[in-house]
Computed example of a mutant assay.
Amino acid sequence: MFNKKKPRRSPQPATKDPEDTLMSGGSSTENLAKDDRILHQRVHFKLFYIGCLPEISGLNSKRRDTEAQLIDYVEEKQIEGTLKLTVTEDDKVTINVSRYGFKVLDTTGQEVIQRHPLHTITQLIHYTDGFGKPNIALKTGQVGKALFHIYIFQCHTEDQAQAVCQCVRRIFDAITAKS
């Protein structure tokens, strides 16, 4: 009898499984400029948490690309057994990316496991591990400190890994454009 219109949703990053990525924004973002819309969104990704490599120093060789050094270091730690090689359903987490940073929650979204404020993120890269799985490595640190942490997450697809990195990049770009 009544035709109900479906609510408009913000565009989602490309993923093959719609459950992998959910996007929600503020309630009245239509009138905001593009950068403001990005800064008022919260994007949720369902990933697997592989582990953390705490208090690392170095990896600043002038001869090698920092991304390659980071990936090699993570894979060395997986071979040593410091990090998991495979993930299970128990390792599933929800990542909330916003202008406030990177928040890791349990799968219900009720318990915050980790928070990484945006100003502490020094590097975020995606790579394919030795098993062909798409991963992202989040490097965090403090300005003026030589120590940093690396948090590793496994994504469902390559597209999802790229979407996480692009989301963070768009937020950084929007913040620097406003400065």
Rank of each mutant, 00 (worst) to 15 (best):
L59K: 03
R115S: 15
Q114M: 09
L105P: 13
D65F: 05
D35N: 04
H40S: 01
K62N: 01
L59Q: 11
E75P: 07
L53M: 06
T107S: 10
R37V: 01
Y127N: 04
I121W: 07
T15P: 04
L59W: 07
T66K: 15
F2C: 12
K5C: 10
M1K: 14
R169F: 10
I175D: 04
I38H: 02
D36V: 00
L105S: 12
R169P: 01
R37Q: 06
M1S: 13
K34A: 03
G26W: 01
P13N: 05
I71W: 03
C167M: 03
I79R: 15
E80V: 05
V104Y: 11
D173H: 14
T29N: 01
A14S: 12
I56W: 09
H119L: 04
I95P: 13
L85Y: 01
V43H: 06
D35S: 11
E67Y: 08
E19L: 09
I50Q: 10
V93N: 13
K5S: 08
V87I: 04
H116K: 14
M23P: 02
I136H: 00
E55N: 14
C167L: 10
H119Q: 11
D20S: 12
S98K: 09
D17R: 12
A146I: 14
V97H: 04
C167F: 08
P54Q: 10
G141Q: 04
S27D: 07
K16R: 14
Y73W: 04
G130C: 05
H44R: 13
S98F: 09
A33Q: 08
D65T: 14
E75R: 13
R64L: 08
K84I: 05
P13S: 02
T86Y: 08
R115M: 11
T140Y: 03
G144F: 12
R169V: 09
V143P: 01
T108F: 04
I95R: 07
E55G: 10
I175M: 04
S179V: 11
Y49H: 05
L59C: 12
T86V: 06
K145W: 10
E67H: 11
K103I: 15
N135D: 05
K4R: 03
F2L: 15
Q160F: 03
D36L: 08
N60S: 06
T82F: 01
P13L: 07
L59H: 15
G101W: 02
H40E: 00
L118K: 14
I38K: 00
G130A: 15
I171H: 06
G58L: 12
K4G: 06
K92G: 03
D65C: 14
R9S: 09
G109W: 13
Q162S: 10
V168H: 00
Q166E: 14
H44M: 11
H116Q: 15
Q166A: 10
I38V: 11
G58P: 07
T21D: 06
T120A: 04
V43N: 15
